Simulated assay, not measured.
Amino acid sequence: MSDFPSRRIAVLISGSGTNLQALIDAQKTPALPHAEIVLVFSNRKAAFGLTRAAQTQPPIPTGYLALQPYLKANPGKTRDDYDAEVARRILEVRPDLIVLAGWMHVFAEGFLDLVGQANGGKGVPVINLHPALPGAFDGTNAIERAYEAFQKGEIEHSGVMVHRVVKDVDRGEPLVVREVPLTKGEALDDFANRLHAVEWEIIVQATKQILDEVLPVPVS
Rank of each mutant, 00 (worst) to 15 (best):
M1A: 07
S2M: 12
R8D: 10
L12M: 07
S14V: 08
S14R: 14
S16R: 15
T18D: 12
L20T: 04
L20Q: 10
L20S: 13
K28W: 10
T29P: 02
A31G: 11
E36N: 03
E36W: 03
V40A: 04
K45E: 05
G49H: 08
G49A: 09
A53S: 14
Q55L: 13
Q57P: 01
P59S: 05
P61E: 00
T62L: 06
T62H: 03
Y64P: 09
L65I: 12
Q68L: 14
Y70Q: 08
L71T: 06
K72Y: 10
K72A: 15
A73G: 05
N74P: 03
T78L: 00
T78S: 01
D80K: 08
Y82L: 02
D83Y: 02
E85C: 07
A87R: 01
I90W: 09
L91F: 00
L91K: 03
R94G: 11
V99E: 04
A101L: 10
H105R: 04
G110Y: 04
F111L: 01
D113A: 09
G116N: 14
G116W: 13
N119E: 14
G123K: 02
V124Q: 05
P125C: 05
P125Y: 08
I127M: 06
N128P: 06
L129S: 06
H130P: 12
P131F: 03
A132D: 00
P134N: 00
A136S: 07
G139M: 05
I143G: 02
R145C: 03
R145S: 11
R145M: 08
A146C: 12
Y147P: 06
A149D: 13
F150E: 03
Q151S: 03
Q151D: 02
K152D: 03
G153T: 13
E154D: 15
E156Q: 15
E156N: 13
H157Q: 09
H157T: 07
G159W: 05
H163V: 06
R164S: 02
E173L: 07
T183G: 09
K184P: 13
K184S: 13
E186I: 06
D189S: 15
D190P: 04
A192F: 08
A197C: 06
I202G: 11
I203V: 05
L215V: 14
P216L: 12
V217S: 01
V217T: 02
P218K: 15
